[in-house]
Simulated scan of single mutants.
Amino acid sequence: MACEGNGMSDERIGEALIKEVIQEELKDVPREDVPPLTPVTGKVKEEEEKVVNQLAKITRIIGDRVKDDAELKDAIDGFIGCPSSGSMSDRFKEVANKVLESGITWERIAVLFYVAGKLAHRMVEAHIPQSVRDILRCTVEFFRNNLLGWIRKHGGWINSFSDLAMASMQSVSSMSSQSSALALIFITGLAIGSFISWRLTRQS
C-alpha cells in the first residue's frame, strides 16, 4: 500500500526530498549565490518531514559512495559543458536515463537525486546560479513522470527504507573511519521508518 492510503503523499515526500538533497549540496555555497528554492507542492506534514529527513541522510551516504564513479562524472560534466545541446529538461533526461539505464531501484533513485544536487552545485560554480531552480524543476518533473508511478507500485517511500538502508550499510563497510556515525544514521533511519510504518498500519 502506498503512502497516500494512510494520509501521506509519496509525491510530496519525493519533491521535498529532491529539494532537501539539492539544498544539502549547496550548504557550503555563500547564501547570496543561491536563489531561494520554494516548495514545489504544499508543505509536508510532520510525519512526512521525518521520512524526508531520514531519506536525505541515507541518500547522502549512498551519494558519497558513488561520487567518484567515472561514468557519473562524465554525465555531469557533459550536462554542464554542453548548454547549447538541447533544452535543460532534455539534457537532464539524458543524465537520468544514464543513472537508471539498468532499471529503476530505490538505490538508483537516491543516486539520481544526489546527482541533481551535484548538478545544482556545479551550476553555481559555473556562475549561473539561476539554473539551480531549473535543476529542481527538471528533477521534480522527471520524478513525477517517470518515478512516482514505480514508487507507488512498490509500496511508497515507507517501503524504501529497508533497501536504502542496506545500500547505505554497504557504504559504511567501505568507509571505516566514518562507520560509527553512519551506522547510527542507518539505525535511526530504520527505527523511524519502522515506527512510522507501524503507526500507519495501526491507523489504517
Rank of each mutant, 00 (worst) to 15 (best):
M1W: 07
A2V: 09
M8E: 13
D10E: 10
I13W: 05
I18S: 03
E20K: 15
Q23K: 15
Q23C: 11
E24Y: 04
L26V: 09
L26D: 05
D28T: 09
R31V: 08
R31T: 11
E32W: 15
P36L: 10
T41Q: 11
G42L: 07
K43Y: 03
K43C: 03
V44E: 12
K45D: 03
E46N: 06
E47H: 07
K50A: 05
V52G: 01
N53Y: 07
Q54P: 00
T59I: 05
T59L: 02
I61D: 05
I61R: 10
I62V: 15
R65G: 09
V66Q: 03
A70T: 02
E71M: 03
D74Q: 13
D74K: 15
A75P: 01
I76P: 02
F79L: 05
F79I: 01
F79P: 02
I80R: 07
S84K: 12
S85I: 07
S85V: 08
S87W: 08
K93R: 15
K93I: 01
N97M: 10
N97C: 07
L100G: 14
E101S: 15
G103I: 06
W106G: 00
E107W: 09
E107H: 02
I109S: 01
V111G: 07
V111F: 13
V115R: 08
A116Y: 12
G117M: 04
K118Y: 02
A120S: 13
H121C: 04
M123P: 00
M123S: 03
V124Q: 02
E125A: 07
E125P: 01
P129Q: 13
S131D: 06
V132M: 10
R133K: 09
L136P: 02
R137H: 11
C138M: 10
F142R: 15
F143G: 03
N145Q: 15
N145C: 05
N146H: 15
N146W: 08
L147V: 03
W150N: 10
W150I: 06
W150G: 10
I151V: 15
H154F: 14
G156F: 04
I158M: 09
I158P: 10
N159F: 00
N159C: 06
N159Q: 11
L164V: 00
A165R: 04
M166N: 04
A167M: 08
M169P: 01
Q170I: 10
S171G: 09
S174P: 13
S177V: 04
Q178V: 05
L182V: 04
L182Y: 12
I185T: 11
F186D: 00
G189S: 14
I192Q: 05
I192T: 14
S194G: 11
S194Y: 00
F195K: 11
S204T: 03
